[in-house]
Design a binder for these strands. Sequence first.
DNA 1: ATCTTCTCGATAGATATTTCTCGATTGGTG
DNA 2: CACCAATCGAGAAATATCTATCGAGAAGAT
Lengths: 218, 218
Amino acid sequence: MGNEVSKAAPEPTLRRLPSYYRFLTELAHEGRALVSCTHIAHEFGLDPTQVRKDLAVTGITGKPKVGYEVPSLIEAIKQFLGWDNVTEAFLVGAGSLGTALLGYEGFKEHGLNIIAAFDVDEGKVGQKLHGKQVLPLSKLSNLAQRMHIHLGIITTPAAAAQQVADLMVDGGIKAIWNFAPASLKVPSSVIVENQQLASSLAVLSSKLADAVRREEQK
Amino acid sequence: MGNEVSKAAPEPTLRRLPSYYRFLTELAHEGRALVSCTHIAHEFGLDPTQVRKDLAVTGITGKPKVGYEVPSLIEAIKQFLGWDNVTEAFLVGAGSLGTALLGYEGFKEHGLNIIAAFDVDEGKVGQKLHGKQVLPLSKLSNLAQRMHIHLGIITTPAAAAQQVADLMVDGGIKAIWNFAPASLKVPSSVIVENQQLASSLAVLSSKLADAVRREEQK
DNA sequence: ATCTTCTCGATAGATATTTCTCGATTGGTG
DNA sequence: CACCAATCGAGAAATATCTATCGAGAAGAT
């Protein structure tokens, strides 16, 4: 039917781009103007062709023998990931993880601005955490709607996560970044990205267990 | 040459197993004795065959028409991921993220026990965070060696991460769970699992940007 | 000026992962 | 008991992702 505006990039590529981005900003600080795929690939232990393909999704193009212009690449990635204009977000769950996220300066660099936190705990409501107001959860939907907030971050215990997600959906939130170990049920129009610590840990545990096993066999 | 003892499972499978595990423990609490792949798949929006293959890596087998025994599955996943016996870990970087991890009760369930934290900040050293001692970074290598700690967790700022990784390697640590936005250089024998917030955010940002773009087109 | 080397971009090939298809097994139903 | 529906397990097919190959262009060396 309609003509594809921009086909989605493979998810593995999306996951690698931020690392390139960080590395490129470091290079820029060091004053480097050009960089080759080979160089980037070496930094991350990847195949140069892989890196070339990843960068290609941003539309940027390099020159043989010299490579890519660092500043152009940085801009291209930024724009591709939508980090060039700020997304405002609400965070729910002002526990230790929530507080850590509220205080993380790096998000600015990624176009993310958490503008307020919400919690059910009366003791936390009214406080300021890292300069951000903690509001009562009951106000979430209403405020999200009025302020046109599109992104919600859930850092509550698992038991509360679904209820919070429901409130977010009511408030018109379009995407949820979920740190709670729970699988959220939301309408299909709502995007959910789960940040599961346990998944990462599983990969590590499994590799470590393998390594130990191999060690013992020797 | 040698006969493969247990071929490694695909990484995507490893990443899904913890979710199944959590869901299964919930089912167990509700008193369910049996579960089918179809049921699990539906919970996570996956293909039933996918789930079946994932579960197959643990060696467990189900019965037609009835499905799998919930308790056996739980045990099998636990064992497969190495969550059945405790791994002791050191954490470096007693900032807000580090503190959050120190206080996370869920790790017990995953066979992870963070036994101490380290920091360079004199103000933090000597404190107890969630019942865990904060020690000076200078003691890391020595203690890791003496206590045979195999897992290190890095929650420092990016600038300090490489230096900490080096100390961990010196201390004989075999696996590093890295939360700092930095790519660590370690000997190939050392396992590194990067928990990059930015990667997850990139996937989300990109999907959200797409959704907004599609919205605007309508 | 020509050669060499590095690197890009495109295409093809290889590998990994997901999805589909099929026959077999089990439990329930008429 | 014969049939039906649900489910498993195994293998085939489809898709996605990664790696290798090749020709061409650009910079520097001889």
